[in-house]
């Protein structure tokens, strides 16, 4: 049992969906996250930008509860609860969703079987009734149409033979069906052409809600033209080194990350 701390509301009364304090994470001898501080209020969309290798994906994995990282210091409070020790599947049931930078291909597992298993597992963990098959089918149909996910794709094994864009659309489909409280999108724009970027962004924007927060990780500013964030953070060498409004993304686009790579190394 994890203690529930009363840190959900910050000083200004905003409800915090996610509050990360001084988070250090390493793999073996290598420290990748070196004191991350980040607060995401409920209902807001925050972007994390930063050079390759700065630790963005690592942060997303650590938030989702992947094994293999040593959390040497700091805390992750989600919805008022410390979750550092919580296994990945329980975090998912509590409402954390990660759209992977590289979604996995899983041969032999039918996409529909997987979607149903995931939805029902989360419902069960929350003490809700399982979906009936017609209800499940209807939900998938509605969500899939919005994202141009075809019936043919749904019949294939999970992500097997999907193009990069199809995989990303499939991630957003899962997000739409699982209705998370906190969605972390790791480079959802990479590998997408302009049309696919529009489809995916529209899908994500449709899921913006007052009770849902998002952490949008990207290397390029162009995604943020479509998914306009409330706050932009810059990550470099395992820390959040700067935060600002959407205009910060434009500045990074103009000047590149050279300053931050230099600053981080210093």
């Amino acid at each position: 049992m994890t203690a529930v701390r009363s840190v959900a509301a910050g000083m200004n009364g905003q409800i915090k969906m996610l509050s990360i304090k001084n988070l250090h994470a390493s793999v073996g001898d290598r420290e990748i996250l070196r004191g991350v501080n980040l607060e995401v209020p409920t209902g807001q969309v925050h972007a994390i930008m930063g050079p390759n290798g700065s630790g963005k994906s690592t942060l997303s994995y650590v938030l989702a509860g992947r094994d293999g990282y040593d959390i040497t210091d700091g805390s992750i409070v989600f919805g008022g609860e410390e979750i550092v020790e919580t296994p990945a599947e329980e975090r998912a049931a509590k409402g954390i969703f990660l759209a992977f930078q590289y979604p996995l291909e899983i041969p032999g597992v039918a996409t529909m079987t997987f979607l149903k298993a995931a939805m029902n597992a989360q419902r069960k963990a929350r003490g809700e009734a399982e979906l009936t098959t017609p209800d499940f089918m209807r939900r998938v149909k509605v969500a899939a149409e919005k994202l141009n996910v075809t019936q043919e794709m749904l019949r294939r094994p999970l992500n097997v033979g999907f193009s990069g864009g199809e995989k990303k659309r499939n991630e957003i489909l899962q997000m739409a069906l699982l209705e998370p409280k906190l969605a972390i999108l790791d480079e959802t724009d990479s590998g997408l052409d302009i049309d696919a970027l529009k489809t995916v962004s529209d899908g994500v924007n449709a899921l913006r809600a007052p009770n849902r927060s998002m952490l949008v990780i990207t290397h390029y500013q162009r995604l943020l033209d479509h998914i306009v964030p409330d706050v932009v953070h810059v990550m470099a060498a395992g820390r959040i080194v700067r935060s600002g409004g959407p205009e910060l993304a434009l500045e990074l686009e103009a000047n590149g990350y050279a300053d931050y790579v230099g600053a981080a190394a210093a």
């Binding site: 597992v109 995931a118 989360q122």
Partner: peptide, 29 residues
């Protein structure tokens, strides 16, 4: 495969169920 397992866990599948899916998939072919 740890990566596949984590993908399934991250969607909320309990570990036993995720392992069963992956082993069944392995044998299915």
């Amino acid at each position: 495969d740890e990566d596949m397992l984590f993908y399934l866990l991250s969607r909320g599948l309990p570990r036993a169920e995720a392992e069963t899916l992956l082993v069944t998939a392995f044998l299915a072919e």
